[in-house]
Design a protein around this nucleic acid. Structure first.
Lengths: 122, 122
DNA sequence: CAGGATCCTCTCTGATACTG
DNA sequence: CAGTATCAGAGAGGATCCTG
């Protein structure tokens, strides 16, 4: 495996802000992006399907999060001119490809769940 | 590979808050944690070594970030009773083990850097 | 149905000053 | 050296109401 420490480390403030790794981590570190990617991984969903499927996620934040994911090219937005209008969200190939490294993190978290909870209790 | 969508999805508000995957992502999604893990991956560092080594990272935020990492059991803090006191931070085995999935994300970001930048321009 | 607009709160981040 | 305390700003998150 490649060593994280061997990767180019952002040393200046600008490097850090522009670092693609930093950008990705901040996106998946927000409150709902990963959950939405996860749901869309099972197939395209309409706006209100996503809204109803995720408890605690407000209307507004869903919109903003989808805009962010769309802006990063991870999610596509397709409008169907029905009446009333239908909008379908789906993972792009780029978004699909992100699921693999995300899974690595998720599996790590599940595998070390007990240790994490033990540490947090102290 | 295991499918992210196949992992247990947090469906209620409490599930989401307690989800270990969510917790890990929010930690590594903060501004400095990954960079610090990355630096400590090369070996233990003293407080001011970390501070000097990372431009733009304030005194206070370094303290808070290290407390967070320590609280999650990812970083250890050792005090040496020298005069003045010396404090050494190092990755715990748990912290070391996190570097592997983190590297997967980092490599994904670097591999798809061009696509990400192109998407963000539109 | 799929949102945009407002307003409000809370957390994260940071600058500055002080301490054992 | 390695912090803690205080204060201030920015941004994320959320509730509510309105619209094509």
């Amino acid at each position: 495996m490649t060593d994280v420490a061997a990767l180019p480390l952002p040393s200046t403030v600008d490097d850090h802000r522009d670092c693609p790794v930093t950008g990705v981590l901040r996106r998946v570190g927000d409150k709902w992006s990963v959950l939405i990617i996860s749901v869309l991984g099972a197939g395209p969903r309409r706006f209100n399907e996503l809204h109803r499927g995720i408890e605690g996620l407000s209307h507004r934040i869903l919109t903003l999060t989808l805009r962010g994911l769309e802006g990063d090219g991870l999610v596509s937005r397709t409008v169907f001119a029905t009446n009333p209008v239908t909008v379908e969200y789906a993972l792009t190939p780029l978004g699909q490809s992100l699921r693999e490294p995300l899974t690595a993190v998720a599996e790590w978290a599940l595998r070390h769940r007990a240790e994490l909870e033990a540490a947090r209790r102290d």
